[in-house]
Every structure is written in structure tokens, then in C-alpha cells.
Design a binder for these strands. Sequence first.
RNA 1: CGGGGUGUAGCGCAGUUGGCUAGCGCGCUUGCCUUGGGAGCAAGAAGCCGAAGGUUCGAGUCCUUUCACCCCGACCA
Length: 580
Amino acid sequence: MRFSQAFIRTTKEDPGDAEIISHKLLMRAGMIRKLASGIYIIMPLANLTIKKIENIIRTEMNSAGAQEVIMPCVLPANLWKETGRWEVYGSEMLKIKDRAEREYCFGPTHEEVITDLVRRDIKSYKQLPVILYQIQTKFRDEIRPRFGLMRAREFTMKDAYSFEASQEQLDVNYKKMHAAYCNIFKRCGLKYTVVEADSGAIGGSSSNEFMVIAPSGEDAIVYCDKCDYSANVEKATTKIDKILGQAEKPSGEKPEKIHTPGAATIDDLSKFMKVPKKKLCKILFFTNGKAANDGREDVVALISGEFELNEIKLKNYLNFINLELIPSEEVQKRTGAYPGFGGPLNLNPNIRVIADNSIKHISDFVVGANEKDYHVKNVNLSDFKVTDFTDLMMVDDSHPCPKCEGTLKKTRGIEVGHIFKLGTKYSTALGANFIDENGQEKPIIMGCYGIGVGRTMQSAVEQNNDDNGIAWPMPIAPFHVILVLLNCNDEAQKNCAEELYEKMKAAGVEVIYDDRNEKPGFKFKDADLLGIPIRITVGRYVGEGKVEFKRRLAKEPTLIGVNEVVDIVKAEIAKEIRGL
RNA sequence: CGGGGUGUAGCGCAGUUGGCUAGCGCGCUUGCCUUGGGAGCAAGAAGCCGAAGGUUCGAGUCCUUUCACCCCGACCA
């Protein structure tokens, strides 16, 4: 490709609406353009990278035994109503109607469609297992799109679905997919980690996320400094007894009301009463948010003041679709607690009280008195009712590893892939059954596996850049080589560059040839911004039969012979693409 | 949806207490000049100041409504 003819427009300045480096660089390099909030145009240069990522995904999926299909992006409502997700998925689903007022949505995910497909065509265990995948456009009407392709509303996703006759088969396929994902992200040149994850709205039993480590990541993850444990904080656990110790025997002293004027937060109260945070009982008030006459349920959550409450864990435990805080002005009426000075004593008798396991590890603790400016000390578990104990705590940096004697470290990640063991959630809902070897009808067991293609591209930029621009990993670079002709008016240089361009093309090297009549500095800046891994500069050494070879992140170029260029370049490319 | 902010040329921005002809930088066009890290000079094109309504002799500027976009939170590949 000649740069002079390429549809590439770079800018010197950062766009006004980009926040993170990868978004700025993709915009400045002219690789993506915004059409509307969360809706982007993939420009020709970015498309080359996208296609490379897709092909890496394809080869890995195919070699894991998956078969590519293409499902529609406009999906009829009836399937979604069958599984109940027409309502559950909520306003994130873009719903549309055709001319006959029939309802559709723009597919946010494809479990319903693929399960419907399979239930029609698979009847016997002999047809199982099977894995299908597609690379296709999804639309999710995100509450808040941001960071360019990182959280777009319209985006390209590779979604794969596996169908099995037994849990063992699912385990095998899940492992295959796990391995394929590792290969994919490795080949894309990403530094990533696999974490235990919450399965969220998709559902299912266990799941893993593939996280690209980056400070701009939207997810907090923890990993052990000694073993291989790592998890999304949404899911992470720890050893509470290593933090809090075992509960001491209650002192036997009676609960006693204490005047604590203005001490409405854990920090204030801890200082005021000179009691460690862990011996304060934090109380929070949640609801599933429905209207009072429409199945609304309020709950009270308790946790030691040492910890933060993990709302995801609570939401999952309660099996709520929605979890929100009760507005503080309504807390008293609905729960019997006084906000700021709330406690588990004398709550409304029919309200559910869910306590974090940490409460079991403390004794003679302090709770709110449900009265302004008062708390109660010397309280123990026997003094109030708890409906259920469960794990509700938010694991944090330096907490103990749940699996070994190590310590957890916290960092941030970008979720580029997510794999789930779905089980029979969708097959049961849609009646996707098969006959097993004993003639018994059973629901098909399923797994599903997603990769954000655009997000993967942008993550690669987020991890591979410097002050001058992008530095693409070789396997996903839009071009491997940028050939820079420094002075268009110099016949010797021009002839040399033209000849090299033709030779490289003939040798199958993916090369962009900067033949524009611009000054050298201008061209170098663009070459760096675009992030092409190898730069060949045709300049002042042409007379000596030499040109300059420079890797994108190298400080200085090295001189190589004009006749060596093709071989050197090909070797360099092969090394990195094969090496990964 | 709650909170905060921004809409002025393709991009990045300035425009004060309302004032006459709306500016700057980058980019774009033409010419000259120039060729090792986003050169210089000259000439030029390009704007319904997001939209609608209002106040006023007069609105980019004040008021009302509305739309779009961005940031912080809950959601996700």
C-alpha cells in the first residue's frame, strides 16, 4: 500500500473526548472514528488489525474443534420470551419492531438462538459434543459507553457455544477453550491473566475471565504472590480467620447503650469509641427495587467494619436481578433501622438479615442502636436474629490467599475474554434435550465462550505504546514494515525506495510505503504513531548502497545493505510470528 | 438513571460586563521555497456559534425548552 493513496488521516493533537491512551492513539492514528456514543467506524488500517485478530481466533477455534456459523444480528422476540430474558436483560437490549409490529431485538448475545438451532437438530448423544462459534456484531445498549472500543455499544464479538452430553464432556471442552484462549491472547501479544469470575447475567456455574493487565482496566482483580490463585474481586475470597482470628468467648457483659454524637461512619465511630474497626458491625440496606406492591423485597446486610461489602456476592446470594440501596429517607420506615446509627437489634421482624461470615468471628461488638446518636456495645450473635450467613466481603490488597499461605495483590484488568460453564440453564428453558445411551431424555449441557475483538485490539494498544504512538505486536500489526522514502526529489533515493517496495511486495511482506512528498520529521512522526513494527528508511546512505533498519521501540536505527533488506525483514517477521 | 461538565470551521480551542465585520493554532487549496524528527513566506476557501423559542434597538454572550457528547457510579466482551 502506498501511503499517498491510503485512507489514513493522522492528527497531531489528542481528540477532545478521549481519556485513555489507547483511545487517543487509535483516534490520532486515524484507525477508528466515532459515529455516535459507543458506535464506531473501523477505518481501513484498523480493519487490517481486526482481520488479523479474527484470523488468529479462527485458527485457534478451528483447531479446538469448533465450527464457524453466522447467526443473524436481528433476533425475534419469541425465543427471548421463552427463556425470560426479554424482560431480564432489560433496557440493555435494543428492541425494535418491523412493519407488522412484530418484535425483535438486535442481538446482545446468542444463547437463545444457538440453543434453538441445536434443539431442532440434535436429538441423540451420538451427535454430541459439538462446538459452534461466530464472529459477529453485537449491540448492547450500555448504560455508559466509554473509552472508544473498550466499552462500545456496537461491537464485534467472537462467541462460541459448546453442547455436551455429560459434565465430563463439558469439562473437556472447557479446558480446550481455555487453552485456545490462552493461545489467542498470547499470539495477539498481550500480557494477560486468567481469573475466577462471577458469571453475571449470562448465568451458569463456574467461569473464568481473561484479563489484560492495565491500570485503565475497568475490573479490579487480585492474584496470589505465591500460588496461581487469581480472581476478579467480584468473586474473590480470602481466609477470614487469618485476618480476624477466631471469635473470643463473649465477656458476658450486658449490651449497653452509648452516646456517640455525630459518629455515623465506621471511621468516626472507631476513633470515638477507641474500638478497632473489626469490632464494629456495619449495616447496609438493600432492595430489589421493584414497586412496593409488585414483589419488592428489602433486606438488611451485616458485615464487620473491617471490610467492604461486595454487592455482587449479595446480589447473587439473594438471586436478585437488581440490587440497589434503599433511599436513606425510607430506611427507617421499611427496615426499622436508623440510618447512620443502624443496627440489627429491633429490626422489623419479617425483614431478612444476611450477615457476612466475618460477623461470626467477632464478639462483644458495637452496633447502631437504631436511635440518633446512639450505639450499643457488648453485643453478641445471640442478641439478634440473622436469617443467613454467607460470604459477602470484598477482598482487598494484602488479604491472605484463600488457597495457600501467600498474600493477595490487587491490580486492574481489561476483560477481553470470558468463558462459562453454563450447565443446562438455556437447554432446560428452551427444551433442548437429547436421548442418552439408556434411552433417557436429558437436557443438553452447555458452555459459552466470548472474546471482544475490538476490545482486544484496543487492549493491545493500551499495553504497547510509548510517547510517540502505538507499537503493534508483530502478529496483529496492520503492516509489518513501513518503508520511508525521505526525499522524494532525490532520484537515487526514490528509485531505491520504489525498487524495495516492489521487492518486498513480491516477497509477500506486508509493507506500507510512505511515498508522500513530506519532510522527514513529518514521516517519522507518522510512522511512529501508526506503530508499524519495522521501519526501513531510504535516505542519505543510498549512495553507499545502504538503508536504515529500525524496530519501532529501538532508539537508533542500524544500517543494512539494500540487497539484504528483504531477507532481514522476512526473518524478523517470521521470528516473532512463529515465536509466539 | 443519579451527580458533574461541554457543544463556536474538518480537528484542538479562545471569545470578558450583550455592541457593529466571530477569532487563534493545526489541517485544507494555490504559488514560491524547503527535505534527517510534525519547516518558512504569501495568497485563499471554509461557520445558521448544537436546535427551538423568548428578552432586547442589538444575542456566540442573558432566560426557557430540547438534543447531542464527555467524565464519576451500577452493567459487560
